[in-house]
Write a protein that binds this DNA or RNA. Structure first.
Lengths: 222, 222
DNA sequence: CGTCGTATTGATCCTCGTCAAAGTTAGTGG
DNA sequence: CCACTAACTTTGACGAGGATCAATACGACG
C-alpha cells in the first residue's frame, strides 16, 4: 500500500488536448490517470487514425510500451484532468521490494489485454450497430465500476469522429447508427450525454459477453 | 536461467486439433509452446468465430487469463507439436525468487499487447488486401525471428477459413484476395506453402509499421 | 452576429458477405 | 491401385452494409 501511495505523490494538472507523448518518443515513465479521459491512437499514413485504447480515471497508461525503447502510439487527453507520474526507476525498485506488486502489474497488463481482445472481437465480427452499442455498454460498465451511483445516464466526452476512430467506421455512419438506435429507444445521446433506458437490452443487442468484465470472474489482485 | 530451464522439464506431445483448454475452464497453468502452431479464439453466438492469437514455437500461452478465474478463450493446436507446462504455484515462487523474472513476464505480456494492438489497427482501418498481406508479412517476420535461414518461402498451416476467422473476413473473400495477390505476383500460396517473391513490396502494400516488431526497438528482456 | 467544430441527411459507389455449385486434394478402406 | 469421402478451394451471381462526397443544420463561443 505504501508503495502505491507513492504513486499519488506527484499529481499533475493537464488540460484537454494535452499530448502525454507521441509515437516514437523515448519510452519513459508510466502515468496513472486520476481524473479525466485520455486515448491512445495511431495515425495511419492515409490520414485516418485508429484509436487503440480509452483511459478512464484509475487506469495506468504506458504499460504497453514497457518492453520497447520507443512509444508505439500517441496519447492525448480528451478532457482536462489530473495524472500522476511514476518513474521507471522507482518501478524497478518496487519490483525488487515486493513480488506481490509485480504480480499486480502483470494483472493489470493481462487485464488490458483482455479489453483489447474484446475490442478485437468487436472489430472483427460485428455490425456497426453491435460495435457501437457494445462500446457504449463497455464504457457504461467501466464507469459504473469506478463510480457506483451512476444511473442510466452518464457523460461520454467522445465526438462521433472519435467514436468512428475507435470502431473503425466513418463518422457519418456513426451518426446514422445513433439515429437508428435512438428511434428504437435503445440509446439516447444529447451533446456528450448518453442515456440507456434499458441497459440490459443494450448488452443483448451488443452481444456483450460479461466474462471479461464481471467482477465475479476476477482474482485476487487489482 | 535455471528457473527458465525448469520450464522445459515437462515436455508434452500433442497432436493436431488438441484442445489445450476451453473458454470458461478454470484458469490453471501456463504453457510454453516449443513445437507446432496453436490459436486462441472465441466462438460467437451466431456460429462464427474470431481468432485472437496465433502462437508459434517459443510463445507463452495463457498469460492473458492471468488475472481471471476462468479462461476467456479456447486454445487449440493447429498442428501436432510439443508444449511445456508451467504450474502457477511454481510461477508464484519464481516471482519471489527473482524480480528480474517478474519483469520478463511483464515484458512478454506487454509484447503480446503490442501484437494485439497491431492486429486491432489491421482490423479497424484496412482493406482485405491490406489485412491479408499484413498478416502474412507479420507471420513472415515472426517466423524469421525464430528461424533465421528462412528464405522467401515458408510453411503456413492455416486454412483459408482460419485466415478468415483471424482477419474478420469470409473464407470466400480470402480466396479471391489471394487470387488477386497471385496475379500481381505478390504472394503465391500452394497448399500451405507461402512464397513472397518480394517481401519488401508486401510490407509496403500492407502498410506494415516496422516499429512494433523490429529488434532494434526492443529493450533488455525477452 | 458571424464563425468554427460537430451532426445530420441524401445520393451514389464499392467492398465484402452470402448462397450455391463445381473443382481440387488428401486420406481411407477395399 | 482404385473408388469414395471429406475437407478445402475456386468461381459466379447477387445483395447489403458501410464509405464517400457534398450540402445543410446545429449549437457554442468569442
Amino acid at each position: 500500500m505504501e508503495i502505491l501511495a507513492e504513486l499519488e505523490k506527484e499529481p499533475l494538472r493537464v488540460s484537454a488536448g494535452t499530448t502525454l507523448w507521441k509515437e516514437g518518443d523515448e519510452t519513459g515513465d508510466l502515468y496513472a490517470i486520476s481524473q479525466g479521459w485520455a486515448i491512445s491512437y495511431r495515425d495511419m499514413n492515409d490520414g485516418t487514425r485508429q484509436v487503440l485504447d480509452v483511459y478512464l480515471p484509475g487506469d495506468v497508461i504506458g504499460l504497453a510500451d514497457f518492453s520497447f525503447a520507443c512509444r508505439l502510439a500517441n496519447v492525448n487527453m480528451l478532457t482536462s484532468g489530473v495524472v500522476c507520474r511514476l518513474s521507471m526507476d522507482r518501478l524497478s525498485n518496487m519490483f525488487k521490494s515486493s513480488s506481490r506488486l509485480g504480480s499486480t502489474l502483470l494483472s493489470i497488463s493481462a487485464r488490458n489485454q483482455t479489453l483489447l481482445t474484446e475490442r478485437l472481437v468487436n472489430l472483427g465480427r460485428r455490425t456497426a450497430r453491435e460495435k457501437l452499442s457494445h462500446f457504449i455498454f463497455e464504457m457504461y460498465v467501466r464507469l459504473k465500476r469506478i463510480d457506483r451511483g451512476i444511473g442510466n445516464q452518464f457523460e461520454l466526452p467522445l465526438s462521433q469522429q472519435v467514436l468512428a476512430d475507435i470502431l473503425g467506421l466513418s463518422a457519418v455512419h456513426i451518426s446514422r447508427t445513433f439515429s437508428d438506435l435512438r428511434e428504437e429507444g435503445l440509446i439516447y445521446r444529447h451533446r456528450n450525454r448518453i442515456e440507456l433506458p434499458d441497459p440490459e437490452r443494450i448488452s443483448q443487442i451488443a452481444r456483450f459477453s460479461a466474462n471479461s468484465m464481471s467482477d465475479g470472474m476476477r482474482r485476487l489482485y487489482y
